[in-house]
Design a protein around this nucleic acid. Structure first.
Lengths: 125, 125
DNA sequence: TCTCTGGTTAGACGGGCGTCAAGACAGGGT
DNA sequence: ACCCTGTCTTGACGCCCGTCTAACCAGAGA
């Protein structure tokens, strides 16, 4: 949190306090949907979903762009564009250390999304 | 539980058996991402996210279109279009009973998505 | 059967998204 | 200081998405 961050005002999605109840328990209000939908939309691209997974599951919790880019059959700018999309919705955070840029996942917002999708283990049938 | 399960033509998103491990534990393969991304994309629209919530949290587990449509400032065909999107990715199921059409949530795929986004409760910071 | 209501489908339009090539920027090495 | 490597930004292009109006289809009721 040293640099200017994403300057996107991601609300409280990055906090650990749950922003909302599970989707199946209470109807999600319009304002909440307007804030959470972009995060799901960001994960709605196969490349970004893989990028998110590679970053979140990386050793030490961070992944270098130099490791992410060659994993796809896409150009560098395209990967950079997808990474920026993930950053703008608060799913990842970027940090430049020397030559390379490292991306780190933000588990808080992932928890928010997972909580929203949570379903009762035994709901009728 | 090897990666062989992903070699299927279509992942069984409607089964209760988890299709994959959490996104932050293991890198999600391309085929899995290609199947799951559309589901996230479907939830990436505020209207569809609210529709999904209204259906999943409805009494009796199902919601009538006649109750869904007036909740938005959109035309009937637009709501119908969004509902079809949710149906095509397997998030909901539609059934016509008499005059009205009822939509029902599919908790299995919701569980799949929630599992994918699951994060260790106490990992690092 | 005819008609009325509710819901979906078809067609179209404007805006946004994914992708690339080319240029700009940041740091390190010589 | 210069260049070289690595990454991000810009501008552009084509496709897809969200929305609408108009037309079509399925049941219920008379």
């Amino acid at each position: 949190m040293s640099k200017q961050a994403a300057s996107r005002t991601v609300l409280d999605l990055n906090s650990d306090t749950p922003c909302c109840q599970p989707l199946a328990q209470r109807r999600v209000p319009a304002e909440t949907a307007a804030v959470l939908a972009p995060a799901f939309k960001a994960l709605g691209d196969p490349v970004r979903l893989q990028l998110m997974s590679m970053i979140a599951s990386a050793e030490g919790g961070e992944a270098c762009v130099c490791d992410l880019t060659p994993a796809f059959d896409l150009t560098g700018p395209t990967i950079s564009h997808h990474l920026r999309t993930l950053r703008e919705v608060g799913l990842v955070d970027a940090e430049r250390r020397g030559t390379w840029v490292y991306y780190r996942a933000r588990p808080a917002i992932l928890r928010q999304l997972a909580t929203l999708l949570a379903v009762e283990p035994t709901t009728t049938s």
